[in-house]
Design a protein around this nucleic acid. Structure first.
Lengths: 214, 214
DNA sequence: CATCTATCTGAACGACGTCAAGATGAATCT
DNA sequence: AGATTCATCTTGACGTCGTTCAGATAGATG
């Protein structure tokens, strides 16, 4: 009960209201993201999403078990967008020593540029006490692990590799949640901009201090 | 308009309903913490707090501007409790090289043991885009900075000291938010317990990698 | 004592998440 | 084709929430 109802016969793939009254699952998720971007997470009610999609307050319940499941779908898209951002950052940085820092900066910038989406992503994760399953095998988390593995020349033990990945991930998440805290403003200015500040913080995190000893 | 109305004449310091109908500000915060611990953050409505304190749903508005201000008061208590936990941890660890890791472990354990309270603390901070002001001068943040400063022998530049503190704080917060994620369970088991896991992660964060070079 | 003022109650408003009953219309089956 | 089936959407309702306001209550003050 996920992706049936493809465009019925002869209609544009994803615009207008093609079906019965529309390809709602998708329209709802898009409406939710629109609300998130323009009005923030506080305004993201199920009724507002339905309103934005031009449908009655009860309509979403034919596509999502409850509000949480809609948010899960939004979060899912968010993780994909984060994957893409990290992939791009990884491709851009040629220096393998800098690559890790670049990944971190890209991660935090994603959160800074999509604060509401990032918040939904982590709120969903906390509700389930777990990161999305896909991440362990091919997602953003895996990109971080691979980058660390490359940097260490593939010599790190599986446990050390995992610990280092977790350490890096936690640092990135923590910084992502606090990047816009007012207290950091003077330091950002002193360092000549937010990116420099980010690099500064990440360079103090010796993700490889232990791996390099081996 | 904060702390007047101490116990009126002859009554136990904090039980029953001593005053007009009670020392509400305090009673409400206590009721809120009780609800947080027993039913979690989702159950923490203003009405539920009033109910728990035995007053009408409108009563809290004579002591707090709105729900957010009540939560601020709860968060304020939370930060004090965190301060205490860190102070204790800092006193216990004699080895200055281990002290930083001990602080980190204590921080995350506090979050693990008071998950709902910790969540309220950071939700409030995010709403204001700032950590509590007191922290910069004498709170938990300051303890972390001092510990780093001691460890580096007081030789770190102010900027490096600040960057290292932020890095450590972000890592601690990130780990605190994810410590109970299911994906980490196998690794915890492999390392022989949650504390060992925490130490493992923190030891991969070379908060001093850069400071030690100087 | 009367009065003042902080505190609390009761009732109400709009918004929320959710559900049950009914309407609607595309798809399927003779 | 027409009848039927079934997913989809609407209407209306329920209980809860945050918040406000007019009025009751009872310490504190004169």
């Amino acid at each position: 009960m996920s992706e049936m109802t493809q465009t019925p016969s002869s209609l544009a793939p994803s615009e207008a209201r093609p079906y019965h009254h529309g390809d709602l699952s998708r329209a709802l998720v898009e409406a939710a993201r629109r609300i998130l971007e323009t009005e923030g997470p506080a305004a993201l009610s199920l009724r507002a999403v339905a309103r934005e999609a031009g449908v009655s307050p009860a309509a979403p319940y034919h596509h999502f078990k409850d509000k949480g499941e809609l948010l899960d779908a939004v979060a899912h898209e968010g993780w994909h967008a984060l994957d893409a951002a990290l992939t791009e950052a990884r491709a851009k940085s040629v220096d393998s020593k800098e690559r890790m820092t670049s990944l971190g900066v890209a991660y935090v910038c994603f959160a800074r540029d999509n604060p509401a989406l990032y918040r939904v992503m982590y709120d969903c994760s906390r509700d389930k006490d777990a990161l999305p399953d896909q991440m362990k095998e091919e997602g953003a988390y895996c990109q971080v692990r691979n980058t660390i593995d490359e940097r260490s020349g593939g010599t790190a033990s599986p446990i050390d590799l995992e610990l280092a990945t977790i350490a890096a991930w936690c640092a990135g998440h923590g910084l992502a949640e606090m990047i816009s805290f007012k207290q950091f403003a003077p330091l950002k200015e002193a360092l000549g901009g937010e990116e420099a500040f980010l690099r500064g913080v990440f360079e103090h995190l010796g993700m490889f201090a232990k791996l390099d000893q081996a």
